[in-house]
Simulated scan of single mutants.
Amino acid sequence: MPGPIRAVVTGGPGAGKSTLLAELAQRGFSIEEEAARAILQGSEGMALRERDPKGFAEAMFARELVSFKRAGERDGATIFDRGFPDTVGFLRLEGLPVPEMMDRICRDTRYSGPIFRAPPWWEIYRPDEERIQDWDQARASDAAVCAAWRDYGYELIDLPFAEVAERADFVIKCLD
């Protein structure tokens, strides 16, 4: 019998990932929230990202490991807001080396479900307190994280440019 399904929604900031995951949670799916946003919402999160991008990446990766393990204890599908290769994409975008341990985990600890990409979507992109990138930086982030996922052998499925309910229907159909 196959293990638990671990699917991911990835892509650049402001492409509707968190909104989609909230919709999927309302429909009864287990969700693992974005590690970066959780860190940024902490009292020292923004300062950590600004003064120590490597430390920020390590904190994200540690949270992703906890989420991955927690999902393995559930029946059914878990859908993650980003995953291990997203951290690699962040490091590359920052011009920082990828630690051997992160690279090894990305190669050896695999997500078993589809990897959905929320492509950059100008009409819905809005900066906020944690989403500090401008449009061009958001597109560069999308390119970096998608390249990292592909480098680790994953195929990405682009989500449609559609209302959140239609996007959720698309994800559910792909999971069936």
Rank of each mutant, 00 (worst) to 15 (best):
D52H: 03
G55D: 13
F56M: 14
F56N: 03
F56Q: 04
A57W: 05
A57L: 02
E58D: 14
M60D: 01
M60E: 14
M60C: 15
M60N: 14
M60A: 09
F61D: 02
F61E: 00
A62N: 10
R63S: 13
E64Y: 15
V66L: 13
V66Y: 06
S67R: 13
S67L: 07
S67E: 09
S67V: 00
F68Q: 10
F68N: 08
K69Y: 07
A71W: 07
G72K: 10
G72Y: 12
E73M: 12
E73W: 03
R74W: 04
R74P: 03
D75I: 04
G76P: 12
G76C: 11
A77V: 09
T78S: 15
T78F: 02
I79Q: 05
I79D: 05
F80D: 08
F80M: 08
F80C: 08
D81Y: 09
D81P: 06
R82Q: 08
G83M: 05
G83D: 05
F84E: 03
F84S: 02
F84Q: 07
F84I: 01
P85M: 06
P85L: 02
D86A: 14
D86Y: 00
D86N: 10
T87I: 05
T87E: 01
T87Q: 03
V88F: 01
V88M: 03
F90H: 11
L91I: 07
L91E: 08
L91T: 08
R92S: 07
L93E: 14
L93A: 14
L93D: 10
E94A: 15
E94D: 06
E94N: 09
E94I: 02
G95V: 04
P97Y: 10
P97A: 11
V98Q: 12
P99R: 12
E100T: 13
M101Q: 12
M102K: 13
M102R: 11
R104I: 02
I105Q: 05
R107I: 00
T109D: 10
T109C: 14
T109P: 00
Y111I: 06
S112T: 15
S112F: 01
G113T: 08
P114N: 03
P114Q: 04
P114Y: 00
I115C: 02
F116E: 00
A118H: 01
